[in-house]
Design a protein around this nucleic acid. Structure first.
Lengths: 154, 154
DNA sequence: GTTCATAGTTAGGTAGCCTAACAGTTAGGC
DNA sequence: GCCTAACTGTTAGGCTACCTAACTATGAAC
C-alpha cells in the first residue's frame, strides 16, 4: 500500500467520525436495554425470528447465526435460553434431519412486541428534544447506515 | 399515560428505525474490532483517556466510568489490564489522596493511534463504495447522533 | 473527633461470545 | 451398495466485560 493507493483524507475523517458515533451509541443501546427483562441479544434474536421466519416454517440455526453475526454454538446457546423461557420452539426440519427449525411462540411474539414498544417510547422521548432539521438529517442517514451494515454483513 | 400524552407515530417510527440501525451496527463494530490486538472496551478507554486527559494530569477513575457508561469497578478492572499491558499509568491525585489519576503512557498513545488507523482504513473502504449523496447524508447525521448520545449520557 | 460521605479496590457472579471436539445426516465416487 | 467427505447442530471448556455487595481509606461537617 503506497501513497497513491492510500485513502482520501476526507473519507478517513468521515470514517473516524462515524466510528466514534457508533462507539458512543453502544452505550446508548446499553442504557436502552438495561430496563427490560429481555437482554439485547435475546431481543435481537426474537426480532430476527419475527422477520425471517414469517413465511417459512421457522429459521435454521445456521441461518440465525449468520443473520446475527455470531457463530453457530452461540446461536444454539441463545435459542436454548429462549426455549426455556417459552419464547421460541425448536422443531426438526422435515426435509433435512440434520437441521433444526426455530420458530417464535405466541409468548415470544408478545414479548418482542412489548419490548420493542417500551424501547421505542424511550427513544422517541430522546428524539422529541431534537429540532425538525436534526430529525430530518437522522432520517435521511438511516438508509445509508442500513446499506453500510448490509455491506459488512454480506 | 393516556392518548393525549402518547408520542407522535412518526416519531415512534423514526425511533424504531434508528434503534434497528444501531442494533445492526453493533455487529459492524464487532466485525471491525475482531482484527486488532486491542479489545473494543480497551480502545474506548484509551481513546477517552486521550480526549479527556489531555490538559489535566490524567482522569479520575469515577470520571472514566461515567464517561464510558459503566460502573466504577468495571472501570478499575479495565484500567488494571491497561496498566499491566503498559498502556496506562495510575498515579495518586496530589489534591485528594482517595483519588487516582489515570494517564496514557507513550505506548498507550501509540497503541490507540495505530488501532484507530487500522479501523479507520477498513471503515473508509466500506464508505468508499457509497455514493457522494450517501456520504453527505451520513456526515450530516453524525452531529445529530452525537447530540443524542450526549443527551442519554448526561 | 466522631460521624457521614466519597473514591477506589476486591470478591463473587452472570451473560454472551469464542474454539475444539463430538454425533448424526446427507451426498458423491467408485 | 458403501465408504468417505461435507455439512448441521450440540456439548464442553474458556474468556472478556459487565454487574452488585462488601470493604478500606480518606475527606468533610459539625
Amino acid at each position: 500500500m503506497n501513497a497513491s493507493e492510500s485513502a482520501d483524507p476526507g473519507l478517513l475523517a468521515l470514517a473516524e467520525d462515524f466510528r466514534e458515533a457508533l462507539r458512543h451509541s453502544i452505550y446508548l443501546v446499553r442504557r436502552l436495554d438495561a430496563d427490560g427483562e429481555l437482554s439485547a441479544a435475546q431481543l435481537s434474536m426474537l426480532k430476527m425470528l419475527l422477520d425471517a421466519g414469517r413465511a417459512a416454517g421457522g429459521v435454521r440455526v445456521g441461518e440465525i447465526a449468520r443473520n446475527l453475526g455470531v457463530k453457530v454454538p452461540s446461536a444454539t446457546e441463545q435459542i436454548i435460553k429462549l426455549e426455556r423461557a417459552g419464547l421460541a420452539r425448536r422443531e426438526p426440519d422435515p426435509d433435512d434431519s440434520r437441521a433444526v427449525r426455530v420458530t417464535l411462540t405466541d409468548a415470544g411474539l408478545a414479548a418482542v412486541a412489548s419490548a420493542n414498544e417500551r424501547r421505542n417510547t424511550v427513544m422517541a422521548g430522546v428524539l422529541s428534544s431534537l429540532s425538525d432539521e436534526d430529525r430530518a438529517a437522522l432520517a435521511a442517514a438511516l438508509p445509508v447506515i442500513g446499506r453500510i451494515n448490509a455491506t459488512l454483513l454480506a
